[in-house]
Every structure is written in structure tokens, then in C-alpha cells.
Design a protein around this nucleic acid. Structure first.
Lengths: 208, 208, 208, 208
DNA sequence: AATGAATGAGAGTTCATTCAT
DNA sequence: CATGAATGAACTCTCATTCAT
């Protein structure tokens, strides 16, 4: 599934231990960041020794990669579950966006890590992770295309998908600012309202 | 102006040396991040010895603070120069936003540093820096209020100001995605168009 | 035969497994040296698990001892097979020396290990191994004594035996130097010629 | 002079500290070998902190290289001082060899290190060091050529030079064997006697 | 005011060895 | 008898910081 090497043979044990590692690492990275978190702390938090940790990864950077990979996998799966590719109704569009905002609310810790630590991955891993991000923007873009087939050109769809994607992430990343002024509901509602207005305005302005 | 201690008496020398430090640090942080950059490297890049560096700061974190502080000061000054508080025309609104996007294009390195490294500041410094960010969003908000006095309520203005602010930063931060699809001009034009449409749609929908 | 403890009861299995261990270890030690070779690598090369390896030895040093012991045993057996204790002819002397040089050519890997790693044995094991080396020099000395009963005194015989012994080992150990200038045949022939000349010169000078 | 990098600027300090490092390392390597000696032990023995040690070298292997380089330099200088390139007398030949044996007696520790640890150098450094060894054999060869211009061909000279070189080293390396039977004087005298006999026998056998 | 040699706590990583299965 | 997951002491190396000059 992913390419991190381990000296352990049992695949189900690898998965179990790596999930422990990922959980511990996310919690520590969120508090202290990747660089200030030591491998020993991660091992301790995960409940095993430093030697055991290194049976399941090769370098500290592997842990960061596991974390990033796992975050995107989770976001993708949960978002995909909300998307019906054949449904072109406005209600479905709104529903997908709301689901995405709920998801981002849920994963605030993880989003912060992505923003701050991805740059510490080596180029190859970084490219892999950023491709995942592109894939997710594309998912949103396809929903837009389905629900507003005539109003927007390709560039406009991409831009809007990107804006939505960022607005979701920023709810958690800039919580020190946004979550004083807004509840999740008011934030979502306003953003969705602006969004639909600009799409529909676009649509009617084209007609004139 | 800022509270970093120095053992040097001459204030103009302090300012000169600190500017050298800031310039060197920004360039290094952008390449390698705060944690992977050593104080020795910063001193060398600035053209003096590690001993001299520590005459002008107390800890490595001080350097990060100097950098963040300087970035916001610069953004603020350049944006402020574009704002005419008495001009309520749509053209002026558009002009301010365009200026802000140009500025963000210019300061991509610095924006990346802000996003990734601010969390490494200690609480007190972080609060200080984030307050600066709030101030800047407020500047945009005031322009919106001036140019669209009736269309939007306070929360909506704040949200839009925040969206604009983020969209500007993301031009640089997500360049690996956006700068393949857009030029700065097409990005700006599209964002501004969506923005104005949603404001004006809001305005007319309220009237009905 | 040797005193390394094992938790396995079946002696023939012990011998079989230990021979696997020795073969793997020699090949790895030659490439990477004793310290850079891990017990895991030895077990893997031998075709069984690290747990099994430790059923047949107690410490990593045991492996080195097994290797050294096995090398000397092999050298001794092959050299002994060439020696006829009752033959006092010059031809037999030359034949023994040539056989010894062929043997050293064959065992270059092993000789290198002996030279470089014996010091890593603990005192007791080292003494045991060095005694084996003394025994082998003595074998050569006895052949000299048989073939040149009057020309040399005891010290001289020992010195020549030692010189021959070393010259054989150096053929492999200093191959980076010798094997560019000489073939095994030219090396042997020259060394034997010098050797016999100095013995015979000794003999005739004594007579004068 | 040598290419090991240091972050210290003062060259005379580098030389002083590196000599301390070399002295400490030789003493420790002789007792425990390169791999069992830790960098902390070397620093402690040299009288400074681990941090200071690493200001003067980059890796542990650098220390081994410094040691090997220094040993050869010393051997070379001391041997060169004994050689008069214009003197072709037998007495001079004998004198050079005796000087070389005294030297090897003096440097037993160092010779043992060379035999056992050179293989731990990376290829490039190893080639550099082995070239030095070749150079030293060549020095002996030139003395042979000067003193016995007609008796030996080039290959024979090389072989004898190599034999002498090894016999000197083995006095220390195999002291557990040789130094029980011989004093340095008796060892030297016997070896020189055999050597001269074989050269002179060669010379006269050629004439017949 | 400027220098840079010295420091040592602490980081990531390895690997011989054990022991429950 | 065989396995291999688990352990943690011990290793090499880094780097922010100090202070005598």
C-alpha cells in the first residue's frame, strides 16, 4: 500500500503498530511540531520502546510520511462517501460542501500538521503527498462540474474548487481568528451563500 | 519598537545588524525551514561571526520573531500606501485588492515562512504576531465597508476580508498547484470577479 | 572439540548448523569485517532466523571463534596431508612449501580475517587460536629440521619457518601489492630460491 | 597537507589539537581496536569535550585516517633520514635495515593498527594509505639496487624489499611469538644474515 | 564591539540479545 | 527445535549558546 520498509514480517502487525505510531505522532506533532518531537517521545506515546519503533520505520521522516499519507487517505475516504457522481442537484452540491466543512472541523489537528510539516518531507514524498491534495481538489471540481454544467469554464471550476478546499482547511488553521467570530454553522452558511451567489451571478451575467 | 534585548548600546548599529540578520534568515528559512537552519549559517550569510550574532539577539527564536515582525511591518506599510480611506469607489476597491495580490506575489518566500514557522514562536510572541495578522485583515475589512456600505453585514465583511487575505497568501503558498493553471493576472481577475459578483448578488437579493 | 555452548542436544545438528554459520560468517567478514557484520546478516545468509542462530552460539564473539578455529583446522589438515615426516629430501621440502603457498592462495579470504579480527577475541580464545598458529609454524620447522639437519640451529630453523609462514600469508594479505608484480608461480619460485640459497650458503659458510 | 575538513580557522591550533587526537586514538586503538573505541573516549583521552573533537574532524573515520597518515609520515621521515642515496656499501645497506628494524620496534602499536584497521577506511582513503606503503617498499628497493647493482633483477629486488618490510612489521605484530624466542638484536642479525647470504649466493650462482 | 573555540545536552539510529509462542 | 518481535544500552554526530580574548 505504501512503500515504507519494515523489518517485521507480519503485515497485520505492521498495520497495527503503524496506526499506533500515526496516532501518537499526530497528537505530538500538533502540540510541538515535527522537529521538536523526538522519536523516543513517539515510541513512548505509542506504548513501546524506541527499538520497536525502528522495527516499523527506517527514519523519523518515514513517520511524517505515514502521518501525511494517513491523513489524506482518511479525508479522501470520508469525502468520497458523501459524493454521488450522478446527482446534479444543488442540494447535493451543498451537502458535499457541508460534509467537507464538517470533516475539516473534525481534522483540525491533522490539517495544521499538513500545512506546517509537509515541507520537511524529501522531494519524492512531498510530490506524492501534494498529488493527493490535487486529487482532492479534483473531486470537488467534479462535483461543481456536475451541478453547474453550463455556468463555469474549466479554469473557473478549478479556482472555485480550490477556494472551497482552502476555506475548509482555514477553518481549523486560522481558528484563533475565525472561531471567535463564527460558529462552524455560520461560517459554512456564509461561505456557501457567497459561493452560490457568485456562481449564479456568473450564470446570469453570461446570459445577458 | 520591538522588545528583543541586545548587549549593544548603539541603536542604529542594532538596527543595521538586525536587518542583516533578517535578510539572511528569510533567505535561509525559505530554503530549509527554521529548524534546519543553524545560527552559524545565519551569521555566516549575514557576514559576521556567531559571537557577533549573539550580541544582537538572545536566542534563535528571537531571530524568528524578528523575521515575522519585519514581514508584517513590510506588508502593512506597502498595503497602507495603497489605501485611501476616503475613497469609496469600486475602482478603488479593485485597486486595493490587486495591489494586495501583487504584494503577495512579491512576498511568496515570506508568506511561506509565516505559515510554517509561526507555531515555533513561544506563546507571547505568537500572540503578538497573530495580532498583526488580524490588523491586516481589518484593513481589508475597512476598505470593504467603505466601498460596499449597505450590501454586507459585519460578519460578512469579515469573512470576505478573510477570504481575500487567504486567497492572496495561497497564490504563493500553493504555487505548485495554482501557478500551473493561472498567471497572476488570470488568478486575480477571476478571484475579483467572483468576489464582486457575490457581493452584488447579495446586494440585489436583499432588495427583493 | 571446541567449547562453545549450545542449547541444542543433537551433536550432528550442531555441527551442521555451525558449519552453515561459519561459511556465512567467513563470506561476510571478508567483505565487511567482523564489526560491520550483524548477527542478523549472518543468520540470514545461513538461511535461518536470528532466534535459531542463538540456539547454536551464545554471543557474536562465539561466531568469530568458530570461524578462526575452523580456518586453522582446515589449514592444518591440508598441510599435514602433504608432509611425510620420514622424507628428508630437498624435493619433499620444496613440495611442502609449494603446497603451503597453494593453500594460502586458496584461503586468502580466511587469512585476511585472521589478521584483522583475531584481536577481537577475548584473551582466552585469542590464546587458544594463537597456539594453533604456533603449532603450524612448528610443523614447518620440523620439515626444515628433517631436510636440513646440520645447516641450521634451532633459532634459525624457527626464524625460517616463521618467515615462510608469513610469506605465504602475505601473498593474500598484500595482494594489492604482490599480485600486480607476481603470479603465484613466480612468487613461489623466487621465495623458494632465496630460501634455499640462504640455507645452503649458511651450510657452506659453516664448513669454511 | 591533508584534506580533512575542520570548522576551526587557526591552522596551528588545528595541528595541535589533531596531534592530541592522534596520540589518544593510537593509544586507544591499540588497546581496543577502532570499532570498540568510542569518539567520546578519544575526546576524553585527548582532554577535551566531544563537541570540541568534532570541531576538528567530521567523522570517526577521519580519526582513523589521521592516525594512518601520521604513522606513515613518521615512518617515512625516520627511514629517509637514514638513507644516503649515494652510498653503495654493504655497511650502509646493513645500517638501513637495522635502522628500519629499530623503527618498527619503536612503532609496534602503530603497526598493529595499520594491519588491523586500514580496511575500515573508505576506498579512497585506503588507496591513499596503501600508496604510502608502496612508496616505503620502494625506498628499501632503491637501497638494494644501489648496494647490489648486479646481483638481482628488478622482480627479485622488489621481492626482497617486500620481505624486509614485512619482517620488520612482523617483529611487532607477531611479538607474542617472536619476542619469546628472540631479542630484537638476535632477530635482526639472523634476518640480515639470511638476507645477505641469499643475495650473495644468487650473485655467485649466476656467475657459474 | 567583534571573534571563534569550547561546551555538552540531546538527537536519531543500530543491533546483540532474549523469550514467548 | 525454530521463530521473529521486542528491548534498550550505546553509538555517532549536531548545534545553540557562552565567554575569554
Amino acid at each position: 500500500m505504501n512503500s515504507i520498509l519494515s523489518s517485521i514480517k507480519d503485515p497485520s502487525l505492521i498495520e497495527k503498530r503503524r496506526n499506533q505510531i500515526i496516532r501518537s505522532a499526530i497528537s505530538l506533532f500538533e502540540k510541538k511540531g515535527f522537529h521538536r518531537t523526538t522519536t523516543r517521545e513517539i515510541a513512548k506515546e505509542a506504548g513501546f520502546s524506541i527499538g520497536t519503533l525502528y522495527e516499523y520505520i527506517r527514519t523519523k521522516e518515514d513517520i511524517l510520511f505515514l502521518v501525511c499519507d494517513s491523513i489524506y487517505l482518511q479525508v479522501r475516504e470520508r469525502l468520497e462517501a458523501q459524493i454521488d457522481p450522478d446527482n446534479s442537484s444543488l442540494a447535493h452540491f451543498i451537502n458535499v460542501i457541508r460534509s467537507y466543512f464538517y470533516l475539516m472541523d473534525d481534522m483540525q489537528e491533522e490539517v495544521i500538521i499538513m500545512y506546517q510539516e509537509v515541507k520537511s518531507l524529501k522531494k519524492e514524498s512531498k510530490d506524492y503527498v501534494l498529488q493527493k491534495e490535487k486529487d482532492m481538489v479534483s473531486m470537488l471540481e467534479r462535483v461543481i462540474a456536475k451541478c453547474f454544467p453550463h455556468s463555469l469554464n474549466s479554469n473557473e471550476r478549478q479556482l472555485l474548487a480550490n477556494n472551497i478546499f482552502i476555506q475548509g482547511q482555514m477553518w481549523g488553521f486560522r481558528r484563533w481568528m475565525l472561531q471567535k467570530q463564527f460558529t462552524l454553522e455560520t461560517y459554512m452558511d456564509s461561505q456557501i451563500q457567497f459561493l452560490i451567489q457568485s456562481i449564479q451571478a456568473k450564470s446570469s451575467s453570461d446570459k445577458c
